[in-house]
Nucleic acid binder design. Structure first.
Lengths: 249, 249
DNA sequence: GTGTATTGCGTATGGTATACGCTTAAGAGC
DNA sequence: GCTCTTAAGCGTATACCATACGCAATACAC
């Protein structure tokens, strides 16, 4: 069952299992210190400001010292993306799956919203970090009494995770674009589209523009759109659960 | 109705409306040339290889020449992300919305799959490029006979777009990670998790691991998972349409 | 032909990740 | 306590990157 295998480098890093040896000069930093400093920089100045030099400066060390703890900047980014996920909300036990997943998704949106830069970090593989797995576990647990088999549960959670990530990425980057350039993306957006969109080539879009959908102050409202999309997805999950349990029961 | 406003710089760029003047030295390049070259580089060597110098070399020009056509690299990325979207599939007119959107989503996945780097380009605002709007229009059209009002159609399409993008990003980056490191993410993944995941802290996840869900060759199958998630989402849309039309009709 | 606008491009600046090797410090064994 | 071994700290160097600036080359307007 538990055949011992050599754990991949990323796993040992994220779980703090890098072997610590006795001999030699004492380390003045820890991986946790470095991660914390990098997260601070990203929170304050954005992910673009996170350079090895900047993080080292934050810690009062030299740039190259960091490479004794972390193989590359990519490893640091991996650490950051796990560290940004504080623990998932502790859901009461008796909840039905739908309220459970709704709370879970809202919680995830909230946590990630506190560290908006997470959505810019490229995914480098399946989840292995402790916090990532913690969230994963809680979502699976919410599906506990649905009668789905384990594989389907994973599929549902993956889908939801994908959706929340996409939603967040869109809303964060849109509102960033809006903040940088309010005139262009506010009222003007609809008008600019109207000038450029030809009714013959874009019939359906023209109708939408004519109906004034893009005339609002902000073309995209995170909260509203997020809840809307989420409930669409969960309706889909409900239909799926019903189909599965009907077939088996 | 059509109050003339000054179009934002991005719009004039993407629609080829930058004013062309007569006097002075003749330009030896066009924005389209530059975009094409950049796309070639990205297709062949990945988005990371796209530097102003590399693109200029591809065209046999000097680096700085590009800046006469494009204000910054960000503008170039914007052009690339519109250019990567070839035209949407031409859907027959009589289709019901669900087959229409399914074909649309599959088509989008296929097109974006041919230029996987698109998912790495940060979104800088609402869609304004001609190809982006073209796709948008076709999705709206597929919802034409559902009885939804224009705003709801936009919400549904945005949700679907978000989902497809997220799906693609996940599947592309996962399979990249898998290609780079097959042992770690193949069979080993489940075993590595098993060694590190404690059943008390991660009860639901442990059950999934024990069930062998992560034991397959590839932990995540694009095709299967994509269709699965898509049908979940479309089930949700169906439920939404039913609710709306029931209330109004 | 002359003036002028515009492109092409060389150079310079200040940033980036990170490879390498030397210096320094700290525990291990004697 | 001395020496050896090992690892950390870090200065330097390399090879990129985007892009600001200024000047030379060029082509149309008059």
């Amino acid at each position: 069952m538990t055949d011992e295998i050599e754990l991949p480098g990323e796993v040992t890093l994220l779980w703090g299992l890098r072997e610590t040896v006795r001999r030699g000069r004492k380390p003045s930093l820890t991986v946790a210190d470095i991660t914390r400093a990098a997260v601070e920089v990203a929170d304050a100045e954005g992910l673009a400001a996170v350079s090895m030099a900047r993080v080292a400066a934050q810690l009062g060390n030299s740039t190259m010292a960091l490479y004794r703890y972390v193989k590359s900047k990519d490893e640091l980014l991996l650490l950051m993306s796990d560290a940004a996920l504080d623990g998932p909300p502790d859901l009461p036990d008796g909840l039905d799956w739908r309220t459970g997943l709704t709370l879970w998704a809202r919680g995830l949106l909230k946590v990630l919203g506190r560290h908006p830069w997470t959505v810019q970090i490229p995914i480098s593989g399946p989840p292995v970090g402790p916090n990532n797995l913690w969230w994963f576990d809680r979502a699976l647990r919410a599906l506990g009494d649905t009668g789905l088999d384990e594989e389907d549960k994973v599929g549902v959670v993956m889908g939801l995770l994908t959706f929340v990530h996409g939603e967040l990425r869109l809303s964060i980057e849109l509102s960033k674009g809006y903040a940088e350039n309010p005139e262009a993306f506010g009222r003007q957006y609809g008008k600019a589209l109207a000038q450029v969109v030809d009714a013959r080539r874009f019939p359906a879009l023209s109708k939408v523009i004519a109906a004034g959908v893009f005339e609002g102050e902000v073309p995209y409202d995170d909260e509203v759109e997020g809840e809307f999309g989420l409930s669409l997805f969960l309706d889909g999950v409900a239909a799926f659960i019903e189909r599965r349990t009907a077939r088996q029961g």
